[in-house]
Simulated assay, not measured.
Amino acid sequence: MNSKDQLGRFLRTRRAQLRPADVGLSTFGERRRVPGLRRDELAQLAGVSQSYYTRLEQGLSLNASVEVLDAIARALRLDETEHRHLHDLAGVVRKNGRNRPRRPAPERVSEATRQLIAAFGDTPVIVLGRRSDVLAWNRTGHALFAGHLDPDSPEQPARRPNTARLVFLDPHTRDLYEDWQRKARDAVGKLRLAVGEHPDDPELAELIGQLTMKSREFTSLWSEHRVRAWDIATHRMRHPLVGPMDVAQQAMPVPNEPGQRIVAVTAAAGSSSQAALTLLAQVTAPRTWTAADTDSVSVQ
């Protein structure tokens, strides 16, 4: 994935989404040739020359200073996530003075993270990696998100489920979310952030290529260049075993594992949704054999 191309496209899509009235510019009824702001208008708002901004948007310059990028971000009215994404695309050096690694290391789940998963008990939990691969899940996390898949698949890198791939290509996952469009936008926005952070990840590029080839909906959303990061998201899920439920999916970064996050799913205390999650844990729990069960088997 070419960082120059990604930076230029991001800037163009954001500029096209701003109208002169949004930033206090008057057009005096003139007929405009382009949607949104012109390059010269954006450059003026950011306090840089039009020629410099044009080179940046055309991918001819990737050495913009932090100050210039911050000024452009303010002019484009980027939110915090979009602002960080702009810095990633422009190749800004991290605060610790080190550039990001060229090729990310293989992902694995540490023993400490597995202990944390176990501490959640029956609360549905999954661990996602930088590409939105499922690196681990507990029994109820597997049952909630992908009970139709092999529960051991996250342990095998070549077979790991990927939540973005599931959202766009798996009928079970599509049916799982009442507002599938919002879930799809979230998935694409997270992948956009990953591209900015890991532009040289070949497996990430392969994933995006596959989704582009197989899903028109993904291709359409990908072309918008929107980024999205979330710590908590609410969804109405329609589970085939326990029915509809309103849940909160809360994401937390995994300590000392860059790019990994734990997602835990909860519901309001005392609600029918919480009852549905409890039922899901019960119906998917391993059966415990009792003395009565043993006697029944021996009689037969």
Rank of each mutant, 00 (worst) to 15 (best):
S272Q: 15
D179C: 07
P161C: 04
A16M: 11
T284E: 06
W180H: 12
E155Y: 04
V283M: 07
E57Y: 03
E203L: 05
R32S: 13
Q260C: 05
N138E: 02
A269H: 13
R102P: 00
D40A: 11
H85E: 11
L62G: 08
P255Y: 05
G129S: 09
T113A: 12
I117T: 09
Q6Y: 02
H85R: 11
D122M: 08
E155M: 06
A292L: 10
L89G: 06
L11D: 01
N63E: 15
S65F: 12
V247W: 10
R174T: 12
H235L: 05
T113Y: 00
P258A: 11
D179T: 07
T212W: 03
A267T: 06
P154G: 06
R19C: 04
S215Y: 07
L144I: 04
P151W: 01
L207Y: 11
R108Q: 07
M1G: 10
R84G: 13
L69I: 12
L277P: 06
S220I: 07
E224H: 09
R39L: 10
V242S: 10
R39T: 06
V48K: 03
Q249V: 14
N96M: 04
T288D: 07
Y52L: 12
L69W: 08
L279N: 11
L144Y: 02
H235P: 04
A119G: 11
D122V: 12
I117W: 00
P20S: 08
R182S: 13
R182V: 08
E111F: 00
S26W: 01
T234Y: 13
L144C: 06
A194H: 12
E41K: 03
A146P: 01
A248L: 10
A187T: 09
N63F: 00
L7D: 02
S215E: 12
R31K: 13
E203G: 00
L169T: 07
D231F: 11
S61L: 05
I232V: 15
G97K: 04
E206L: 11
S26P: 00
G147D: 05
D70V: 01
L241D: 13
F28D: 13
D150P: 01
I232R: 15
V167M: 08
W289V: 14
T123W: 03
V23E: 10
V227L: 08
S49C: 06
V66K: 14
A205Q: 14
Q58L: 07
W289L: 15
L69D: 09
N96C: 10
F168V: 02
K4Y: 00
A21L: 08
F28W: 08
V68G: 14
S296N: 06
V188C: 06
A112H: 12
D231C: 05
R9D: 03
T54R: 07
G47P: 11
P286H: 04
R14H: 14
P171F: 00
L69Y: 08
I232S: 15
D201L: 01
S223W: 05
L76P: 03
K4Q: 13
D175Q: 15
T219S: 15
L86H: 09
R131G: 02
A164P: 05
P157I: 00
